[in-house]
Structures are given as C-alpha cells and as structure tokens.
Nucleic acid binder design. Structure first.
Lengths: 341, 341
DNA sequence: CTTGACATCCGAAAGGTTTCGGGTTATGCT
DNA sequence: AGCATAACCCGAAACCTTTCGGATGTCAAG
C-alpha cells in the first residue's frame, strides 16, 4: 500500500521529476509520456501523499477548531451549528476541517500550541472568547492566521479579526420587551465572569432598565456556567430569594431551559407567572413547551462568515471588514406570556 | 516563524539529533544538556512540526470522516450527534478528527481517495452504507483502516468492522405497537433503495405485519430521500391515495417531521387520526408537538464505539467483536395517539 | 557548419522530524 | 599502561513531494 512517485518512475522508466510534472499537468512533458505515466499511475492507484505535499508546500488546506468536549456538553447546540456552518463554507473552498476535542481536564492552551504552533492547520477559529484571551494572545504572538467568534470584553479593543453579534442590543431588546409587557422586577442570569461577552450582556440589561428608569438591583443577578444545570440553580435561587420577580432574562438558551425546570419546580407557570427569555435561538428553543422567547443569532451564518474571513486572511487577501458585528433578532414566543394590563 | 530543531541545535551548539533526543526524553542525553536544550526550546517557543512528524512516522493521530454537506442538511442531527460521539471518544485517546464536508455536487469517492489514499488520516469512519458500497470496497482494496456505521444490505455478508442497530427489530416493534393500538392500515416511508439499511427496515415492516397476519400492500409503501421534504411528499401521496390508512411508519425522524406537516395539511390530527412513528430519536423528536413516537438508537454511543473499534484496528489490536449490533428501543410518545377500542 | 531555439527530461535540494548505526571521550579496572 | 565499558553525542538516511536550474538532443535558420 502506498504507491509513490518513485514507484511510478521506476515502472515507467522516467524520473520522479518527470512523473511529478506529468501528473501535475505541466507543459514541458511530451504528450505520449504524459499518457503513459497517467495510465501507469491509474493502474497502480496512485494517490499523492498529502502529508508530504503539506510539508513541502507549507499548506495544509485545513482549518482547525478546538472545542471543549464533555459527555454532558454533547447537547451544546451552539458549537454543533457553528461547526456545521464552518464545514459548509470550508467545503466550498475545498478546505477540510480539523476538530480537536478537548476533555475538560486538558489544558486548552496545549491544544492550541500543538495545532497552531505545530503547523497542523492553515488557520484556526477561536470560538468563545475569554477576557484577555490567552489563545488570542498566543496566536498573535506566533503570527498564525485566526479568526474569532465573539470579541474582546467591552472595555478592550478587539484588534483581531472577529465576527460577533450585537448582544448588548439583543439583551436590551429582550429587557425592553419584558418591560413593555408590564414587568418591573426582572432577574438576570449571566454567563461566567471570564467569558468576554458577559460584559455586553450585562450592559444590555442595564441599558434596558435605565431607559425605562427602573433601578438596577444587584440581588436580581445570578451567574451560571452556560450549562443547563446552572440555569436551573440560578433561577431557583433567584425566585426563592426574590419572590417579587416576574421575568427572567437568561443569557443563553441552554441555561434558560434549565431555568424552565426551576420555574416549574416552584409551581409557577412559565409565561403566565414568570416570563422567560433566552439567547442564541438554538433549535430546541422553538420546540420546548412553552416555546422559548429568545434572541436569535445566526450561528450557522456566523460559522460561514468566520470561515470566509479566515480563508481571506490565509490567502493574504487583507480583508477589509476585519471585525463584523451582526444584528440579532428578538423572537417572541410563548414563554413571554402576555402583556399585563 | 516556526522554530525548528535546527534552530535550537544552532543556538545550543548541539546537533539536531541530540536536540531531538533531549526533547524526546531519551536517556542517552546528559542531564545538563537536556536542561539547557529544553530551556532554549521553551525560550524560543519551539513546537514540533506535526506534519514533518507525521510524514516520518506514517502516523497522523487523526481519524477522518467524510460527510455530505448541503445548507439544507444543516439540521441533519444524525451526523451531528455521531460526530460528537466520535470526537468525544477520540479526544480520550488524543486523536483529532478530520472532517471533510462534501458538497452535493462533489464526487464522494474522490474525497475518500484523497483522504484515505493520501494518508491524511490513520483511519476513517464510513457513515451511511450503500448497497455494494464502493467506499468500503475501496478502503478494503487499499487496506486502509476503517469502520462502518451501519452494515451491508440484508442479503450480503458484512465482512468488515461495523456497528449497527437492529433496525429490522426496531421497525417491527413499531409496527407491532401500531397494530396493538388497533391499526390495520399502516403506511411505510422507506429510505432510498441504494441505502443499505433500507432492506432491514422493509423486512421489519413485513415481519411486523406477517406476525399479525395482515397482508402487505405495496401501495402502502413510499420512498423518500431521508430529508424532511421527501417525508412531506411521501405522506401526502400516501394519505391522498389511500384514505383508509390510519398509521404511518417513517424510517427516519427527519422524514417523519416532514410527514407531520403533510398530515396537518390534510386536516388530520397527528395521533388521533393518523398515528405516526419515526426512527433515530433525534432531539427534535422529543420536542415537537405532538412529540414523536420513534425508535431510539444510541447515536452518540455508536460514535464512541466506532471510534474505539477503529483505534483498536489502527493499533493492530485485532479486536474480537468485529461487528456489533446494538438493540434499539421503542419510545412511545404522543404521535402514537391512543389505543383504539 | 554554426548557432539558437525549442522540446523534453532530470538531479538535487528543500521541507522538519526521527532513528540507525556508529563515533568519541572519559572512566574504571586489571 | 592497556583495555573494556559506559556515557554522551552526531551524521546520514528516510518519509514523499515539488521545483529550480540545468542538461541533452533535434531541427531550422543563418
């Protein structure tokens, strides 16, 4: 197994160079020679060794993404859909996608050093930004092509190529929607502090309240870890300690699904007693009952755009729009309940 | 950018060999030398070039999967979940996953030749078997490690490593369930003829009817292409041309979701007028309304098992259970309606 | 007959790593 | 002093490809 140029060279009597150039379609090889060589190559089932080619060309035609991976994160649709979008756009450019899944125990930075530093891929997609993200710092330091889904925290400049949604505006819309529906006591479940977009979502919450002249009460705010369980816990504590709350803004859908459980657990009705809103618009949001009001972000499209931006950078195209902020959209569903009169 | 062994060798005054062996942890290197070399390597931010290593070792520590990819297949949860399972198990063995998405226009075999023949991966996972699957034939012919999700069609021996569910039994269970609920006119929506498991699902349907002594009526059978739309069309034609039908068995959930639309379109009530059952138990099945009765197959676990089996083959472990058939499970949900009296 | 152009071909290097087989030096022993 | 051994080190080859810079031979024009 493993027919090489050398094998074809020996069989055909020509040199490796000529075989390579014949198969490569160069015009400094006799037409008869080419025919003979291609025929032999086909007979022997020659396939160029891509690894050798990659080494030689310093091009892998592959983009990489490193994803956290635990059994319970299996239903994290965000990454799922993002990866689909990436793969879809990549396939149009005949690029492959290398996924390196990291167990929770593993040091994430190691994976970046290995994959990016080790020249495994032409470019890399960084998926959920942290404050002062060490991955971004590293990739910049070694000058490796990369793009970012998300951006730096609000106080920091995002001096790297990224695509993000305007999640501050998104959360603000959601808050205003609830205020419009007559709610005055609105809880908030935030992502962890170290996630970069947490600041934006908090700002959106504050902005929404401020516009309506409602004072922000820190005891209405909880933090989760983006996973379902933490949404359950946060909502539980929020409702137990602040019985006056009638609406909860949750910063991602997965936690919102958890919060649904907590609301039921407290014998309250979602929508009617407690209005609930999420963020992301994962498929499940539409299908839960009651369906979940949420802020839609075009995850699949973000994946596609990230890929196209990355490929431009790889091709040294010096793209114009180095940072793109997409709008998001309020999806009003049953968990909003109805307007209080 | 790109610090190599050579750079470290020059800076440290030792040879490339010694640098390699020092960093590799061999014991024929003086302890002081090793310290010096590791220090320099760290200072310079050395990362071994994985491509070069792969070329030399003929090992990529990567497994590959080639997936069909179109924008509308974006919601094909089966592949999504399978890939998650694969990635999860792979990460435990420090293997990466190479995904090559193929546009519908592309020749699938080309991708296999490129990736497997081109030594891009140590092993490959073949995901949805066809009758006389050319991909399997090819991989066998070049003796490239692979495992298969699914198996050969009923009439053929599956002389390759595979993991599959007993879908004949699954469909049979579903048919018996409907018969038990009092249905006598049961439609069937099959996958395309060229898919290997179509035969098993057909057999399950026949077996279920036979056991109950109900004659099989060919006009109750339609074929779709596994996608949502085709389920819609098939159900539509089935109900229009055979108004006596009261239950439909659909061979995958995605088509079943489409069939739901068709039933509604015909002003019939899912469950009450027309009982509906799917296959796969994708997440959406639980969340639609009404929720979808379906045959559960453990897709995530299949992905994990496939990976473990493949890695054993790669390690030349000559695994025992070269073909595994897992049981599947009937999930009775609202689309079953109630037992007719 | 010489020169130049053209068609066709090829050797060798480069890309970065690992490893085989051997080489050098110092140490310990008789 | 002589020799075996251990400790440490290194050159070169191999993995397979592409490409640079020629090399060779033929033929037509001068």
């Amino acid at each position: 197994m493993g027919v090489t140029l050398k094998d074809i060279a020996e069989k055909s009597g020509f040199s490796i160079t000529t075989v390579s150039r014949a198969l490569g379609g160069f015009d400094d090889v006799n037409e008869d020679t080419r025919k003979l060589i291609t025929q032999i190559a086909n007979e022997m089932g020659y396939q160029p060794n891509l690894i050798a080619r990659q080494l030689r060309d310093k091009r892998t035609h592959t983009i990489g993404i490193i994803t956290p991976m635990s059994a319970e994160s299996a239903d994290d649709d965000f990454f799922n859909i993002l990866i689909k979008g990436i793969a879809h756009a990549a396939s149009e450019y005949h690029y492959d996608l290398l996924i390196s899944a990291q167990l929770p125990s593993a040091d994430e930075m190691d994976a970046y050093r290995r994959i990016a530093g080790g020249n495994r891929v032409d470019g890399i997609i960084v998926a959920r930004t942290y404050r002062d993200d060490p991955r971004i710092q590293y990739l910049k330091s070694i000058d490796h092509p990369f793009v970012v889904s998300g951006r730096a925290e609000p106080e920091q400049a995002s001096d790297f190529p990224y695509i993000d949604v305007d999640s501050q505006a998104g959360i603000c819309m959601l808050v205003e929607h609830f205020i419009d529906y007559g709610h005055r006591h609105i809880g908030l479940i935030l992502p962890p502090e170290h996630i970069a977009f947490t600041g934006f979502r908090y700002n959106g919450y504050r902005e929404g309240l401020e516009t309506a002249g409602i004072p922000l009460r820190p005891e209405y705010i909880r933090q989760g870890d983006l996973r379902r369980d933490s949404g359950y816990n946060a909502a539980n504590s929020l409702l137990t300690e602040n019985p006056e709350i009638t609406a909860i803004v949750v910063c991602n859908d997965l936690m919102a699904l958890g919060a649904m459980g907590a609301i039921r657990q407290q014998n309250k009705r979602i929508g009617l007693d407690i209005a609930l809103g999420g963020f992301d618009d994962i498929p499940a949001a539409r299908h839960t009952s009651p369906s979940l009001t949420t802020i839609h972000q075009p995850i699949f499209e973000i994946g596609e755009r990230l890929t196209r931006l990355l490929l431009k950078i790889i091709m040294q195209d010096n793209p114009q729009n180095i940072g793109q902020i997409l709008p998001c959209k309020l999806m009003i569903r049953d968990s909003s309940g109805t307007r209080k009169t």
